[in-house]
Amino acid sequence: MDHKLPPYASTGHKIWFYGFRVICGLIFFFLIAPILIIIPLSFNAQDFFTFTPEMLRLDPEGYSLKHYRDFFGDDGYPWRGLLIGAVLGAGFAGAMWAWKGERYIVLPVLVGALFGLIVGKLWGLDGAEWMTPLRNSLVIAPMATLLSVSLGTLAAIGLSQTHVPFKGAIMAILISPMIVPLIISAAGMYFFYSRVGLQGTYWGVVLAHAALGIPFVIITVTATLVGFDRSLTRAAASLGANPVTTFFKIQMPLILPGVISGGLFAFITSFDEVVVVLFVGSAGQQTLPWQMFTGLREQISPTILAAATILVSISILLLTTVEILRRRSERLRGMSPG
């Protein structure tokens, strides 16, 4: 079907053309509506999971931020953290200006303030219902990501060489965490990690999540390396650069988009993972998805919708980042965007 209706189309053709679009519209609605509908529901002033009459009348009385207040609680020191972060950011900007003469001021202060806000908010929590799991997630996911990205990038470079013995077998092993159903990985890790004393520890969860994130790093980075022009490294070598310099100055900047998007995949894998952490972790490592899982299974409270809305916002942010990175990578490699 062409995307425009020709002027000579018959009535039946027209009905089919518009009917098909309506069907597609409905399917898109099915895809997106469940995610979007929780956003207004999360502002419900009542503890209901449906639209109250006040909400339908768009009466401001029907809406409130109370579930968000429940989500964030009032522990921690967010404002102090924000202030300290902003000051540190400004200090960093000053140092950079004095040292290299770069005059960025807004970005370091903003990043510092945001970072300080988060750290301050999550500082010194004592069993807050949602913030403690959030902190655990924010500790575990970056560590797991760091592990899988550093090891994964190295291995992806090795795998993309022309002569790799047993390449198929190695690839199959490295990709396997993505193929094996999570419940089986979780069961195996639970048995094995309790044998070696890692069950119920932070490190156990971090190692498990790193293993789960590795296939994504391998796949995205090897995909970037496919388009990598090897003559560039040879040119660098012929100009006298040693392999380490070549790697950091030539290869790394070119494959960086792939590495970052692999890292984002690894991060989201860990941040969103619940089956493995349910088994490998213990109450001390309860993560945000775990808290949502127990919340959904036991007493479902509307605070979950506030948490879900925040997570949806984060995924929109991540999706945008990955999309921008993908286009940039394709532009860098001389491919058409799309």
């Binding site: 895809l31 997106i32 998805p289 959904l296 879900a308 949806v312 995924s315 929109i316 999706l319």
Partner: peptide
């Protein structure tokens, strides 16, 4: 519209359906 659900947390989508 296809990628957004793909990127959204599994728990979020499940809780949406539960609701």
């Amino acid at each position: 519209l296809v990628l957004l659900p793909f990127w959204t947390s599994l728990l979020v989508r499940t809780s949406a359906w539960k609701v």
